[in-house]
Design a protein around this nucleic acid. Structure first.
Lengths: 206, 206
DNA sequence: AGCCGATCAATGATCGATCATAGTTCAGTC
DNA sequence: GACTGAACTATGATCGATCATTGATCGGCT
């Protein structure tokens, strides 16, 4: 049982908390690209031991926010144009696959997608990206392929999109029309929806 | 400088070695699906401490060979038909993307691919799969997208293909014709090569 | 100067021990 | 008997300390 307003508390381990601290520091620029991340220094600073910091670093490595060399530690990754250029084709390809798999689930059932579009229309600031990604995540979920979902999430969509938008001052607002088009394509089971979504994602690319 | 035959020795950490031990035990069936993997037990058995075992387990989790619950440890994953059914569409989608990106690199330069086809033709036993995967990896590499390559590798292609083939007694030998077709399509820059590769991969699906 | 080899400091990798949580057992109560 | 909750156990999570590798520093040699 649970109190109705119980915050469904996520008793998260230290590693996860430290990961979030480091993500914040990297995305905020407090940790500069190329800067070393010394396990013991972070541990001392946060009042924890080396172990959970190591664990957090492994997660950051999986997100490609840091790079590590064996026996030589981790440093904040230098985000190059190549990194951003590589990100979008992979994301686009995964979402194309997702769209194809999701097609039969979404045919005639695009309410959820339209809900995201509506919320996106009235959103401002960082919420724009959040809702936009929620729209795409809805499609990936609808594909009903958990592996695909995991792989897609493992790209670190939010973070890398944020980094890309910040770096390139990408326009984020003008894409509502395309979202509507895509939702429509799903509704009428248009076989081109996969390619449409692919091309849509690629428009965010630098 | 390097002695010519220096084995470019990979002084690998304990974690990586332990990972390999556990992979072997899982693929060989010594560790049965559902079986718990107790960190301290493995550590004692191998004469190491808990830390590198934990690290190995995290890697196995990324390969989806074990599943872990917070504070409750890891157990060998139950490989369901759903797992195998989900694997191939994702792999196929990634390789379709790879083929599209690789097209301009490979147009007229398919010697490497043909080399793999030749070696595959004379291979036997487990080498068949190894060479077949090398053919596909060559394409993924030719895409020139490191992220795509990492994501593709992160699927655990070798392991999951092995598991699938073993489970379903999939025929592996008869695909040489398709490999030749695909190499030809690359040579003449056929725009359908992406879809061809996609469909080819899906033929391995159960 | 430029090239070695020894020494040293920094720090990742690993260890052994402890803390905290989840599941189990079992006595007590109704 | 079924439920409750307090021990108890197993074990993941975390800790503090040590081992081992790396890159830097320095002196001697040519």
């Amino acid at each position: 049982m649970n109190a109705l307003n119980a915050p469904a508390l996520v008793r998260t381990g230290l590693g996860d908390q430290i990961r979030q601290v480091l993500i914040d520091r990297i995305t905020s620029g407090e940790l500069q690209p190329g800067e070393r991340i010394v396990e013991r220094r972070i541990a001392a600073e946060l009042g924890v031991s080396q172990a959970p910091v190591r664990e957090a670093l492994r997660q950051l490595e999986a997100l490609r926010l840091v790079e590590t060399m064996p026996n030589r530690g981790a440093r904040v990754r230098e985000f190059t144009e190549v990194d951003f250029a590589e990100f979008f084709p992979v994301r686009a390809g995964l979402e194309e696959t997702a769209a194809e798999l999701a097609a039969r689930h979404l045919a005639g059932r695009v309410e959820a997608l339209e809900g995201h579009i509506e919320r996106l229309a009235t959103a401002e600031g960082p919420d724009v990206m959040r809702h936009s990604i929620a729209f795409h995540r809805e499609i990936v979920d609808a594909a009903g392929n958990r592996l695909l979902r995991e792989v897609w999430e493992s790209l670190g969509i939010e973070i890398w999109t944020t980094l890309s938008v910040r770096r390139h001052d990408t326009e984020l607002c003008g894409k509502t029309a395309e979202h509507i088009e895509i939702a429509d394509a799903f509704r009428r089971a248009d076989p081109r929806v996969g390619r449409m979504l692919h091309d849509h994602v690629m428009k965010y690319a630098p």
